[in-house]
Design a protein around this nucleic acid. Structure first.
Length: 316
DNA sequence: GCCTTATGCTCAC
DNA sequence: TGAGCCTAAGGCT
């Protein structure tokens, strides 16, 4: 269930584990076609933009992975775990598998660590990957990847295979698109061709941190406000790459006032906090369904310049 | 065990 | 705008 932070995190880990190495690729459940075109080749690059991953095995041999809402990677050290359930793709370093025959099979997920879901295995020691639940996993041509990048908006975490990414200070095209439409800003932030990589958690939290009414039409959001949201998203999403937690609250706003890793229930201002008091003003956080997704917001802190605007039908 | 929900997206109407 | 797809976890009985 990833947003851009997690995608870039996987890209970084898989880069350091596998780039330059000869890989074996197979699809145990047959759902991924053409894996034989990748099997036995060297992984040249791992690309990431927004919520898309690209594993480059040569010209026109890019394994495109989109995790969708449920997809997830499992990674670990040899030996490989037994195949269970619907495993869509498996990749492992050539040479590493020889050890499988000599070692006892470990149980799946035996490598999982603490509740933050991060791996205890350092990336350089990762031998294999398994993919399940992805909404897309298929072999793409270079042209297909280029078309994707063309369609996507700027990514706060940078683009393509550069670890540090090329993050623009001012993502002009994204601001222009927002300024041209009456669509509410909360919908625009989720559109991947406006800004790539923001999902439901970051959109709710970024809007709260800017104290912006989620229903403000794009063309009425001050440019200064857009700039602050963009600038805010960069460190926030980078921090989300460290482990698989998204933390958006400032220590001073948390009930415990504790710095460092917050309690689970203090990690977000509004996301999934409907019915609970806003940390800042004490008003009950609301939720509503908009464009098929759940939006969370504080009706007092986020009145912004549009206090009179209805935000859907509030539930609790 | 069953039901609901979930960090996403595409397609048909 | 709604259905459909994919999987796992948590809350309920």
């Amino acid at each position: 269930m990833p947003e851009g932070n997690e995608i870039h995190r996987w890209a970084e880990r898989h880069r350091s584990a596998f780039v330059g190495k000869k890989m074996h690729v197979e699809s145990p459940n047959g759902r991924t076609e053409d894996t034989e075109r990748l099997d036995g080749r060297v992984l040249e690059k791992v690309l990431a933009h927004g919520k898309h991953l690209g594993y480059v095995f040569g010209k026109d041999r890019i394994l495109h992975v989109h995790l969708g809402r449920y997809g997830d990677w499992t990674e670990g050290q040899m030996p490989l775990a037994e195949v269970k359930g619907v495993l869509r793709l498996r990749m492992w370093r050539a040479g590493a598998r020889a050890r499988v025959d000599q070692a006892e099979a470990t149980t799946r997920h035996g490598w999982y660590s603490s509740d933050d879901g991060s791996s205890t295995v350092a990336p350089e020691n990762v031998d294999w990957l398994e993919l399940r639940g992805a909404s897309d996993c298929s072999v793409w041509t270079d042209a297909q990847w280029e078309q994707l990048i063309e369609r996507l908006g700027p990514d706060p975490l940078g683009s393509t295979g550069e670890p540090a990414g090329d993050v623009p200070d001012d993502p002009g095209p994204a601001f222009e698109r927002i300024a041209k439409t009456k669509k509410p800003i909360c919908v625009l932030l989720m559109e991947q061709d406006v800004i790539a990589g923001i999902g439901n958690i970051y959109r709710a939290e970024l809007l709260y941190r800017e104290r912006l009414n989620p229903m403000t039409p794009g063309n009425e959001v001050p440019v200064a406000s857009l700039k602050r949201i963009w600038k805010d998203s960069i460190p926030l999403m980078k921090a989300g790459m460290v482990d698989r937690r998204i933390i958006t609250t400032r220590p001073k706003d948390r009930p415990t006032k504790k710095a460092g890793l917050p309690l689970k229930e203090e990690a977000h201002y509004v996301y999934r906090r409907h019915g609970k008091p806003c940390f800042v003003c004490g008003t009950k956080v609301l939720k509503t369904d908009i464009a098929g997704r759940t939006l969370y917001w504080c009706p007092v802190c986020q009145q912004g310049p549009h206090a009179d605007r209805e935000v859907g039908v509030a539930v609790q």
